[in-house]
């Protein structure tokens, strides 16, 4: 933001050095804090990712890219990557779709509009730890979900929701007589699914608010013209709302992807060490385990963090490629 500000200023008028200095002085506190607590650690983390270190810093050997090589060979990394990918794949499209639909509904002139807006947004502003604890009760044996399932006469899973490592694709395939399903095809476990549902529930509200803001930018006369031409509500949604919201959708999907690839607190609170059977160990949780639970140490964990950054960056580029072309039209 600082550079963007400086650039527009420069292009507008010949640089006035006094303003320039004043600008930097005003920016300095924020910039120094940012550099010390954000930039500094990021580059330090990149630096130690080339070292073999123990938790106390008493061992510190330069090993080049060995950590990275070791990570790519590690089944733990691929397991965590798989879990995170399933998590993201399940959560991002769902929360985007729900957020969009909620936004469109909450944007209409209906009674109690602001109540619904507040109600849907509420989970997003509540503490995620508190919500996770509440969901832990809900998912317990004979908890709310079990009561609901029993009432509908649907069999509840065994082991219990949060303790069930069986993948949902695996279970489906086994219904059709498949014997041993390879790990990458098992799909998210029931435990991970349970956390995904919680995540969708909490973030859909945030996405709704962003979409609501985007909807304000679509001029009403476009819809007016469309209804004069006889376009149905659904048609208007598909051919006007969605295309015109494209930049917002890109923003929401990017935000969602970053958020889901960084999921940690819910895993930390709701599972015992990324269990059952490692099916809820996400990449960030693995970083925590390797770095702080006497795993491979901070160097290895930092290398993992760098790889995670790379993954998110590549995903962003891909999403921008597919969703971000509105400016050229």
């Amino acid at each position: 933001m600082a550079t963007a500000l400086a650039r527009t200023k420069r292009s507008r008028s010949p640089m006035e050095s006094e303003d320039m200095i004043a600008g930097w002085v005003f920016l300095a506190p924020a910039f120094i804090i940012f550099a010390t607590f954000i930039f500094g650690p990021i580059f330090y983390s990149l630096w130690i990712s080339f070292y073999e270190r123990n938790s106390f810093g008493t061992i510190n050997n330069f090993v080049g890219i060995d950590n990275y090589r070791q990570i790519l060979d590690s089944p733990d990394f691929w397991n965590a990557f798989r879990n995170t990918a399933w998590f993201s794949l399940g959560v991002v499209p769902t929360q985007t779709a729900i957020g969009l639909v909620l936004a469109v509904l909450a944007n209409r002139k209906i009674r109690g509009k602001s109540f619904f807006r507040t109600a849907f947004y509420f989970p997003s502003i509540s503490s995620s730890v508190v919500i996770s604890l509440i969901f832990l009760w809900i998912y317990q044996r004979n908890g709310l979900v079990d009561i609901l399932f029993n009432g509908l006469n649907i069999p509840v899973p065994n082991p219990v929701w949060m303790q069930n490592p069986n993948g949902i694709i695996q279970m489906t395939l086994e219904q059709f007589g498949a014997d041993s399903v390879p790990p990458w095809l098992r799909g998210p476990s029931i435990a991970l699914m349970s956390i995904m549902l919680l995540n969708i529930w909490t973030t859909a509200g945030t996405m709704m608010v962003i979409f609501l803001a985007g909807l304000q930018d679509i001029p009403g006369d476009v819809y007016e013209a469309a209804s004069l031409d006889g376009a149905s509500r659904v048609r208007q949604f598909r051919d006007i709302t969605v295309p015109l919201l494209r930049p917002v959708i890109l923003f929401v999907v990017t935000l969602g992807t970053i958020g889901t690839f960084q999921v940690f607190d819910q895993i930390f609170v709701m599972t015992s060490d990324g269990g059952p059977a490692r099916t809820t160990t996400t990449l960030v949780y693995l970083i925590y385990q390797e770095g702080f639970k006497f795993g491979e140490g901070p160097g290895y964990a930092s290398a993992l963090a760098t790889i995670l950054f790379g993954i998110i960056f590549v995903l962003f580029l891909v999403q921008r490629h597919f969703l971000g072309q509105t400016e050229n039209r």
Partner: peptide
């Protein structure tokens, strides 16, 4: 042993897989 805390997590994961019939 050294790294035992990390191994404990993995050992639990194996037991969980056993108890779930995997």
């Amino acid at each position: 042993g050294s790294g035992g805390e990390r191994f404990n997590t993995e050992a639990n994961a194996e037991l969980q897989a056993l108890f779930a019939g995997q």
